[in-house]
Simulated scan of single mutants.
Amino acid sequence: MTNDTLGDQVLQIPLSDRWRIYHRLQELTINCSCHTDGSLRVQVNNLLEAVLIRSTVMQLLGSRHELVDWLERCWRDEQ
C-alpha cells in the first residue's frame, strides 16, 4: 500500500455473507483474502474495483428497500 490510500474501512459482516462476498470478488478478480480471525480483507486499486465491491456488498447485504432506492436513483440520474 502507498501513503496516499484512504486507510482501512471496516464493515461488520456475518461470516456466511463474508464467504459469499469473498467468492464473488474472486470471480471478479479483485484481490481479497479471508483471515483466520474471520476478517475479509479487500484491496481496492481503482474506481472500477470500488464500484464493483460496493455493488457486490449491496447485492448480498442490502435490504429490498435499499436496493429499490438505489436502482431508482440510477434510473433518475440517467434521464
Rank of each mutant, 00 (worst) to 15 (best):
W19H: 15
R20Q: 10
C32N: 09
L61N: 03
L6V: 14
E78H: 08
T2P: 09
L61S: 02
V44H: 00
D4S: 13
E66L: 12
V68Q: 06
H23F: 12
H65T: 14
T36W: 09
L47P: 07
R54P: 01
E49G: 02
L67F: 06
L25S: 00
V42F: 03
Q12P: 06
C32P: 02
D69Q: 15
G62W: 01
S63D: 06
P14D: 07
D37S: 05
W19L: 15
R73L: 07
D8N: 12
E27Q: 14
D77I: 04
L15A: 11
L52F: 15
V57R: 00
L47H: 13
I21A: 01
R41D: 07
E78L: 12
Q79M: 08
E27K: 12
C34N: 04
E72H: 05
T56M: 01
C34H: 05
D37I: 01
L15T: 11
L47R: 15
D8S: 08
Y22G: 01
L28I: 00
R24E: 12
G7V: 02
L60H: 00
H35G: 05
H35C: 06
L61F: 04
L25E: 00
D69H: 14
T2F: 10
S55L: 06
L40S: 04
V57L: 03
S16W: 09
E27D: 15
E49T: 01
Y22H: 13
R41Y: 06
R54M: 09
I21L: 03
L6Y: 15
L47D: 14
Q12T: 15
E49H: 03
L25G: 01
T5A: 09
W19A: 07
E49N: 01
R73Q: 09
C32S: 13
D69W: 09
D4G: 06
D8K: 11
R41L: 07
L48H: 11
G62Q: 01
N3Q: 10
R18S: 08
E27N: 14
C74D: 08
E27G: 09
D17L: 13
R76G: 07
P14T: 05
N3T: 11
E66K: 08
L11F: 14
E66V: 05
G62E: 03
T29R: 13
L28P: 00
R76A: 13
E72P: 01
L60M: 04
H35P: 00
L61V: 04
S33I: 14
V42E: 02
Q26A: 12
R64W: 09
Q43S: 09
L52V: 04
I21R: 00
P14K: 07
S33R: 12
